[in-house]
């Protein structure tokens, strides 16, 4: 697969988040699940934003998957997502914040893996 960075882009990567107001505190991570807010206005976005929305029309994806599919660096898509979350277009499901894993999550993972 050709990575997005191997091609020289006509529009530089950083433009993807250029016109968005990005909140000062960003909690978006690689594994944050992102999906379209039910009542979001989805028109009038810049091309990167509308590409992202087209990608999410089928359901939630992690930010990292979005970056790979859009062919943009993760650090840019992180800002793009944060900006659209701030504007109310996207919603997120954040990964658990604690460093010590929750025992219930561990059990879910174990049972799930064993059942495969």
């Amino acid at each position: 697969m050709t990575s997005g960075r191997q091609r020289r882009r006509v529009v530089p990567d950083y433009m993807a988040a250029a016109r968005l107001t990005v909140p000062e505190h960003i909690s978006v991570q690689r594994t944050t699940l992102v999906y379209i807010a039910p009542d979001a206005a989805t028109n009038g976005l810049d091309p990167p934003g509308s590409h992202l929305l087209a990608l999410l029309r089928d359901g939630p994806l992690s930010v990292y998957e979005c970056a790979a599919h859009l062919g943009l660096p993760y650090c840019v898509v992180r800002l793009l997502v944060a900006g659209l979350v701030g504007g109310g277009t996207l919603l997120t499901r954040d990964p658990p914040a604690t460093d010590l894993p929750d025992i219930e999550i561990l059990e879910l993972v174990l049972n799930g893996l064993r059942a495969l």
């Binding site: 699940l33 939630p60 994806l61 998957e65 790979a68 599919h69 062919g71 954040d94």
Partner: peptide, 19 residues
């Protein structure tokens, strides 16, 4: 690039876990 549209999707109720 793989087509994202043909991929299955998770629901927003799933807890993301990283390994």
């Amino acid at each position: 690039m793989a087509s994202a549209l043909s991929d299955s999707r998770v629901s927003a109720e799933h807890i993301p876990v990283k390994l």
